[in-house]
C-alpha cells in the first residue's frame, strides 16, 4: 500500500535523525522556527483565509517554451508556404527546417511537462472539440505529420534523389504537405491562446480574445525574426516583422488600457505583470523602433526575446491570478 510505505519512510527518517524534518514537522524546542503562516484570527485574508478559489496552473518552464517554439514553428510553415508560392526556394528550405525542428521539439517539451510522460499517447485517445488541449494535441500531430514528411519530400525533390515520376510525385507531395503544414502551423501558433484563454483563471479568460492574437502574431514575428537571423534578410520578412511588432504594440496599448481591477491585477501588478510588460515592450515598440531604424538583426533579437518573455509572463500571470481569491470573486462579479 502506497501510504503505508510512506509512513515507513517517515518512521525510518524519524528513527535515524531523531526527527522528521520534511514538510512542516517541528520538534519541541527546535531552534529554527518555520516560516509562519500569516493569517489573522476571525477569517483573515480575503475569502477563506486567503486560500485560492481556483487552482493555479501546475505547468513549469516547458510550457512557455513550447508556446514559443510552437509559435515560431507553426508560423514558419506559413512563411514556407508563402515563400514556395512566390518561389523563394532557399527560404522555403530554411523555413521548413525551422518548422520541422519545432515540430519535433514541441511534443518533447509537452511530454516533459506531463505528470506521467509514458502515457503521452493517451492524448490521441479522443478527439474532443470542446477541449483546447485535445485540439492542440491533434493540431500538433497534424503539424508534425505534415512538416516532417513534407521536409523529407522537399529535400528528396530538391536534391533530385529520384528521377522521373517519383520526383514529380515528391514535388506534388511536398506541395500538399507544405500546404497542410501551413494550415496546422497557423493553428498551432494561435490555439495556445485559446488553450489558456478558455480556463477558469481570471486573468486568462478575461483576455481570451487578446491571447490568440498575441500568441499568433508573436509566433509569426518570431518565425520571421528567426529566418532573418538565419540569413534571409529579405523585404518580405522585414514587412512581416513590421506587421507583427505593430500588432504587438497595439496589443500592449490594449492590455494597458483594458483593466479589470482586482480581476486581472496579476497583469498590471506583481512581478508577473512586469514580465508581460517587458515582453510586450521588447516585441512591440522596441522591435518596431529598431526595425524602423533598419537595425533588423537587433529588432529580430528583441522580438524573439519579447516573445519568449511574454510567454513566461502569461504563465506567471496564471499562477498569480489563480492563487488570488479576490481576482476570482472580482472576475465573476464583474
Amino acid at each position: 500500500m502506497p501510504d503505508e510505505s510512506r509512513l515507513d519512510q517517515l518512521r525510518e527518517e524519524a528513527w535515524q535523525k531523531g526527527a522528521v524534518t520534511g514538510r512542516g514537522v517541528d520538534i519541541a524546542g527546535g531552534p529554527i522556527p518555520r516560516k509562519l503562516a500569516t493569517a489573522s484570527p476571525s477569517g483573515g485574508g480575503p475569502g477563506y483565509y486567503g486560500q485560492p478559489v481556483v487552482k493555479p496552473p501546475v505547468w513549469t518552464w516547458e510550457i512557455p517554451v513550447y508556446f514559443f517554439v510552437g509559435g515560431f514553428g507553426g508560423m514558419s510553415a506559413v512563411i514556407a508556404l508563402a515563400a514556395a508560392i512566390f518561389h523563394h526556394v532557399d527560404l522555403v528550405h530554411t523555413a521548413m527546417w525551422v518548422a520541422a525542428i519545432a515540430a519535433i521539439l514541441s511534443p518533447l517539451l509537452l511530454i516533459l511537462d506531463l505528470g506521467r510522460p509514458h502515457l503521452f499517447i493517451n492524448m490521441l485517445r479522443v478527439f474532443k472539440p470542446q477541449s483546447a488541449m485535445s485540439m492542440g494535441a491533434w493540431i500538433l500531430t497534424g503539424f508534425g505529420a505534415c512538416v516532417v514528411p513534407g521536409l523529407i519530400a522537399l529535400e528528396l525533390h530538391v536534391h533530385q534523389v529520384f528521377g522521373g515520376t517519383v520526383d514529380q510525385l515528391l514535388r506534388v507531395a511536398a506541395g500538399v504537405l507544405m500546404f497542410g503544414s501551413a494550415f496546422f502551423g497557423m493553428l498551432l501558433a494561435t490555439y495556445t491562446g485559446v488553450l489558456i484563454g478558455a480556463t477558469a483563471i481570471p486573468a486568462w479568460f478575461l483576455h481570451r480574445t487578446l491571447l490568440p492574437i498575441h500568441f499568433g502574431t508573436a509566433g509569426l514575428g518570431s518565425a520571421a525574426a528567426l529566418l532573418e537571423l538565419l540569413g534571409h534578410r529579405i523585404a518580405a520578412l522585414n514587412f512581416i516583422g513590421f506587421y507583427a511588432a505593430g500588432i504587438e504594440t497595439v496589443l500592449l496599448i490594449w492590455l494597458s488600457l483594458d483593466k479589470h481591477g482586482a480581476a486581472d491585477r496579476a497583469i498590471h501588478e506583481h512581478r508577473s505583470g512586469w514580465l508581460i510588460r517587458i515582453g510586450e515592450i521588447f516585441n512591440g515598440p522596441l522591435a518596431l523602433i529598431l526595425r524602423f531604424f533598419g537595425l533588423v538583426p537587433f529588432a529580430a533579437i528583441s522580438f524573439l526575446i519579447g516573445a519568449l518573455v511574454s510567454r513566461f509572463g502569461w504563465i506567471a500571470v496564471g499562477k498569480v491570478s489563480g492563487s488570488d481569491p479576490e481576482s476570482v470573486f472580482a472576475a465573476e462579479r464583474y
Binding site: 481556483v54 506531463l114 505528470g115 503521452f120 493517451n122 496564471g318 489563480g322
Partner: peptide
C-alpha cells in the same frame, strides 16, 4: 488513463 497534462487543473472553476 490520466497522463497528467494538468489542463483540468486550470479548467475547474472551483479549484478542486
Amino acid at each position: 488513463v490520466c497522463n497528467g497534462c494538468g489542463y483540468c487543473v486550470v479548467s475547474c472553476p472551483f479549484g478542486v
